[in-house]
């Protein structure tokens, strides 16, 4: 099976992703991979499971199949997808034939959506992965976001199967585990962090999501200079000016700002999909509870 598609329109944060480039932290490279891993997996199931996929944002995406045929699956957030102008169910799947167009525009919620195909995306693997790292400038097409005129080749049988990840159905507060430097924040400040309201700021990308600290919880926090230490996705760090920022898939591998908490794995997809302006609250759970949630999701 093979096909060639052309990017007719792409937002500045669209990129080629796969599950991620794991194992490269000591070389200074975080794993990247989909911002919403469950949605990426679902698009793969719908399409037939070719490797790799296109991640797009509320800026939308238009593609045209220049040659061949392919089954395309789409999922993630809420988007409107048109196949040759006809609106399709979202999430869903459709067969693209030569000359067909697929146009995606934002729907009512979510920041990220995915297109995946029944054949593999052809890109040069870097350290075993084609995931685009916006931080390291690796993977995908020349390590950069997609843009108009990009040509993406699809080849191979696909169908290698993707591990289904059940999307987390939870709503409400984002669950966290207290972070590496939680003890260096006064108890009173930790409580205000839980009581406070934050909103997702417009300053978000694949590296991190900056929060607006509506109640000024961290406005007067004394931020100590710390020895640089390992960062994981979901870490909530407090910058020198008191801004909280949640580090995401293209996070820096190490950093020296204090981290009060870490978003649990099962809630990170949901957090990534929160649009600017959305209120968000955080609630702590135990490590054991976080693991129970992970195990129940895999069943």
């Amino acid at each position: 099976m093979s096909a060639i598609l052309t990017v007719m329109r792409a937002g500045p944060l669209s990129s080629i992703q796969d599950e991620g480039r794991f194992g490269m932290l000591l070389h200074g490279i975080s794993a990247s991979g989909p911002m919403d891993r469950a949605a990426f997996a679902l698009a793969g199931q719908l399409s037939g499971g070719g490797s790799g996929g296109i991640e797009f944002t509320t800026a939308g995406l238009d593609i045209r199949l220049a040659s061949g045929t392919c089954q395309v699956g789409f999922a993630g957030g809420d988007f409107v997808v048109r196949h040759n102008g006809m609106v399709q169910d979202w999430p869903g799947t459709v067969l693209l034939e030569t000359g067909d167009t697929l146009a995606v525009t934002p729907g009512s919620w979510g920041n990220y959506g995915y297109l995946r195909f029944d054949a593999d995306i052809v890109a040069k693997p870097m350290m075993g992965s084609i995931a685009t790292s916006s931080r390291a400038g690796l993977g995908g097409i020349e390590g950069r976001a997609l843009r108009v005129g990009d040509v993406i080749e699809l080849s191979g049988g696909g169908g290698t199967g993707t591990v289904p990840v059940l999307p987390e159905q939870a709503e409400g507060a984002i669950r966290v585990i207290w972070g590496l430097h939680a003890d260096s924040f006064p108890q009173e400040l930790r409580q205000r962090f839980l009581d406070g309201t934050f909103t997702i700021s417009p300053r978000l990308d694949r590296m991190g999501v900056r929060l607006d600290d509506v109640d000024g919880v961290f406005a007067d926090a004394k931020v100590l200079s710390l020895v640089s230490d390992a960062i994981v996705p979901g870490d909530i760090q407090i910058l020198g000016d008191g801004s909280p920022i949640v580090l995401m898939r293209d996070h820096q591998p190490t950093g020296g700002y204090p981290r009060i908490a870490t978003v649990v794995t099962v809630d990170l997809d949901r957090f990534a999909q929160l649009r600017p302006g959305t209120s968000v609250a955080f609630t702590p759970i135990t490590l054991d509870h976080a693991h129970q949630l992970l195990r129940s999701r895999q069943r």
Binding site: I177, T262, L287
Partner: peptide, 13 residues
Amino acid sequence: PLGDSSFLVRFGT
């Protein structure tokens, strides 16, 4: 614990 999928073994601050 650093999140729910990592541990940090820290020999000093």
